[in-house]
Amino acid sequence: MSNTAEAIDGSALVGRAGGPARPARRPRPTQPLIGIILPAIIIALWQVAASLAWIDRVFLPAPLTVVTAFWKMLTKQNLALDFLASVKIVGQAFLYGSIAAVGLGIAAGLSRKVEQFFGPTFDTIRHIPGIAWLPLIVLWLGIGAPAKVLVIAKSVFFPVFLNTLQGIRNVEKNYIELASVLTLTRWQLVRKVVLPAAVPSIMVSLRYAAGLAWALVVVAEGLSGLEGLGFLIFRAQGLLLTDQLVVCMVIIGLVGFAIDRSMYLLQRRVLRWKQGYDG
């Protein structure tokens, strides 16, 4: 039998056994418009509420006022710098926290000894919220970025660490057996089997941690420091600049949305081997 004949034979087999092989990427029917309906309704309601003065203008500025405030903050004040300050803190904290977490998670996943060594300490530290660490760390490191980076990195660390550990421990026993039959060394087993098997679990936690880090920076900046979106939002509250306050809230929401979408796309890219994976 020639190779060609076998290939045809192979595809004929697929055709019979449950439809042709699906292409690597199914084009997903996306309906971006439907997602815009609700925000449009909210903005419309907001406008109506402001126009009819349902709520005092001091407490609820009209949408257009907020847009104007945004422009003013961007051109006359240092909104861009504050924004960058927040992004930098989150970026650094996420990077340090997740690298440490994946590294130690893998080590603890592969070795019970490592897990037992860190376990009790980590499980205690984990239960002290990052924000509770902040006052002490600010005393040590000052009100600048390093204290916030440290506290947020801590909050990123734990979900990623625990998921990495679990991901590694949950590798199917059948795959370990296969590796044994194929005479893979321990290092080959880790590289070819254990780590790839843990990736889905790690990716989920990275996506979660990225969102968490962004939410926490606002809190951390609100509690200490003199720059960043979190600082602006609390300052605006104190000065009753509700238009600026809303500007900050919207930016925080949109950036959070963008972070989550990027992580989702990254996840899809990394996990393209996974069946029916849709996040």
């Binding site: 192979g10 056994a17 092989a21 690597a24």
Partner: peptide, 10 residues
Amino acid sequence: AYPHQLSGGM
């Protein structure tokens, strides 16, 4: 192809 794209026989 990735395994999930193959039928059981394949």
